[in-house]
Every structure is written in C-alpha cells, then in structure tokens.
Computed example of a mutant assay.
Amino acid sequence: MMKCTILMSLILMFLAAAADGKRKRPEDKVKCPKVKSLRNFDLQQFLGNWYVIQYYASSEEALAYRCMQAEFTMSVPFIDVTMNFTYSFTDDPLNEQLLGNITWSIPNPAQPAHWSHSEDTYEGIYNTYVVDTDYSSWALLLHCAEKSKSPRYLSSFIMSRLPILGVNVISYLRDKLPRYDIDVRYMFDMSQNECDVPQAGIEIPPSLLGSRVQATSRKHPMKHDHGK
C-alpha cells in the first residue's frame, strides 16, 4: 500500500511539473502567435468608426499616443479592408492630429476576421485579427508583423463605438490577451478627452514650442518608425 501511495505521488508530481513547464513555454519573439479567426464574423457590421480605448505595442513601455480613432471601410468587391486613423502624441503641446492608414487583403473569404498586409513600410507581413466584437459597442483587434531575422511587432486595440467603455467589458477583453503573448501590464488607457485641435484655451510658451519634436521623426502607432 505504501509503495502505491509513493508511486501515485510521484506521478502527480511529474504531471504537475509537466503542466507547469507547458505554461512557462519560452515565448517566440520572432514568430507571431497562432490566432483563431473569429467565427461567423460579419465584416459589414464591423465597418465604421471606432475609438481606441486601450492600446498595446510590444516595442513600447509607455503610452505615446492619445485621441486615437479609426474608421474601417471595405472595397467593392469585398477584397480589401482599409483602416484610416487619427492620433496625436501625449506630449505634443499643440495636440496636432496626425493621419495614417493601412489596407489589408482578406486571404480567405471564409475567414473574414483575418486580414493580411505585406509591405516593407509595415515591417513585412502584417496580420490583423478581429479577436472578438459585438459590433455595436466593443471590439478587440490583434496586429502582428513578422520580418525576417527581426523581432516581431505585436500590438492590440481595445475599441469602442463611444469614447468610453465599461470597466467590466474592458476586463473581459483584456483577459483574452495573455494567450497571445501580450503582457496586459503594458495595455495602456488611451485618452479620448480634449481631442480638438489645438487644445482650447491653452497658451503655449514659445520655449515649449521651440522644443517640440516633429511628428515625422517619431514612432507611428502602426509601425516601428516613420518612413521605414
């Protein structure tokens, strides 16, 4: 009886160690995580305007952006998805709104929640997945770019049709991200306040304007660097 108990304990210890090892698998910093496309996704319902409520990028340890908003459109026939977006930098005293866009193709019409883009300025192959959405209120996007012999670029948007989103919904969406190697400690709140240009009622000292960093020399929220 004693031998059986010892043997059973050893088996349980082995299984626990194996499970722990599986949980602590080494993270692949080059390849994008495997993502299942959202089933029964209706792209037509997803189109339109969204506010980015929280933002993550693997290359950043602090939030550099504010007032990020996106508009999704689709070509006819239904081949391409385009995101036109606006944003400004958190430390820009002028709160200048900058413009950007990216267009993806849909590799498999049967999986319209997966979009793919290939262009050097977007760091090689750039895949985007709609991880979850209810269409009318909230959505979760995952972006991942792979480039040969370079670390991947991983980013994610929690989005809302309104400038605010409920805490419970945000928590629900954040809980989905760790499985895709996203550290939610670096999933930052995106301010959607005072997004008019310029900020109303603010007098900016000339010295501050003189030290203002030009946007073209700074990081782009969907790329590693401007113009590269």
Rank of each mutant, 00 (worst) to 15 (best):
A215F: 09
A19Y: 12
P178T: 09
V52T: 13
D91W: 06
H117K: 10
F85T: 06
E203M: 10
P26M: 10
R39C: 02
V130G: 00
L141C: 01
F188L: 06
D28C: 05
V167K: 15
E96I: 11
A200Y: 10
D28S: 10
V76R: 09
C195Q: 04
Q69R: 13
L141M: 10
L154P: 00
G166D: 15
A110D: 11
F72C: 03
M2Q: 14
S59K: 13
R161D: 03
L208I: 14
A200F: 11
G124S: 05
R212Y: 03
A110F: 06
D196E: 15
L162R: 13
D42H: 09
S116K: 12
N40E: 14
D134S: 08
Q97V: 08
E60N: 07
R218H: 08
G124Y: 01
C195H: 07
I125Q: 07
M187Q: 07
N101C: 04
Y56L: 03
P178Q: 08
S191W: 05
L7D: 09
Y51S: 02
T86H: 07
L141V: 07
Y56N: 01
L12K: 10
E119L: 12
I204H: 04
W115Q: 02
D189C: 01
M222H: 05
A62Q: 14
Q45I: 02
R152V: 02
L98I: 13
V169Y: 02
N84M: 04
Q45C: 03
Y135Q: 05
G227S: 12
R174I: 08
T216A: 12
A17W: 11
C144T: 02
T216D: 13
Y56P: 03
F46Q: 03
Q199E: 12
P26T: 12
Y122I: 07
A215I: 03
L43Y: 00
F89Q: 03
L140Q: 00
E146T: 15
S137P: 00
R152D: 01
K3Q: 15
F85M: 04
E60C: 04
E61W: 06
S118N: 10
P151L: 12
R179K: 14
Y56C: 01
S191R: 05
Y122L: 07
N49E: 11
F72G: 03
L10H: 08
S207I: 14
L141Q: 03
T133S: 12
L10D: 05
G21E: 10
K36T: 12
L208G: 01
S207Y: 07
N108Q: 07
F157A: 00
E203P: 00
L94M: 13
A200V: 11
T5A: 15
D132N: 11
N49C: 02
R39L: 09
L63A: 08
A62R: 15
T73H: 02
A19D: 06
S58C: 04
A16D: 05
N84I: 05
Q111P: 00
Q44F: 02
S150C: 10
Q44I: 09
A113I: 02
V167I: 08
S9P: 00
V131S: 00
F85K: 04
S137R: 13
